[in-house]
Amino acid sequence: MQIAFLVTHIRAEEKLLLTAFAEAGVEPDVILDRDINIDLVAGPDQHAPSGRPWSEYDLVLERCVSTSRGLYLLAILNRWGIRTINTYETASICSDKLQTTLALATAGVNQPETRVAFTPESAMGAIERVGYPAVLKPTTGSWGRLLARVNDSDSAEAIIEHRQTLGDYNHHTYYVQSYVNKPGRDIRAFVIGGRTICAIYRNSEHWITNTARGGSASNCPVTPELDEICQRAAAAVGGGILAIDVLEDSNGELLINEINHTMEFRNSSAPTGVDIAAEVVAYALAQAEVVA
């Protein structure tokens, strides 16, 4: 069985995964995205930076921190018929909040009210329709970057003008959500192959609860209700290995906020008691065996 491990560099998660692979008796080829130099016209028999033809890989586990590099590589590999985790289809939906919203809406999964507009005037209209406070987000991006809670029309006008003036065209797509008044925390659930293996609360006094922004993690019990909405959300984006961010509204109802396709989990195994790296590797090996 040949597995490639596609990375930008080795973070805590990649080290945990490589250790879990070693414990399973498997040594994947680590391929750095910076070393990629692919002939797009030639097929999968060309050599990867590892020296092995791409076609020899039973599975490529994509863990690039660079979303654009990861997406293009998944597109190429899937076109060549090489199995990847996640698939290009799943990654392309999850890397774009608007596409995620559409996929969840199609599947009837509960989520915040969300609108899109493309000009400053229509963006103001979208915010007014959602009502204050609203949340403005870039459609791509991670780690809580450039999220804005918009409390009134003055701040809406200022944020829109800044984005229009200082941002590139990506920031001229105005993705607007209703603000969910969550109880000082949100939920991150880890779903692998359709199973919700564990979840954490991300606690923060700030409305942005990302652990990358200082939110702290504690165990969140996987209730049947949480499991059910997470399984439906994962299926809506094509499944695989996913971290699903879930909000609790003031009535205790669950809403899907976003879905991450190259999840970080370094702070989540300790509070949950679940060896997430081992779960990822077990799933990856099972998927590779389907091909091998």
Partner: peptide
Amino acid sequence: LEVLSLNPLTVDLAPEVEEDWGE
């Protein structure tokens, strides 16, 4: 820092975070 090689042990500044980095 990023470890560029193990033998000899060499490090350099890690790449700056780019706008598309994340999960």
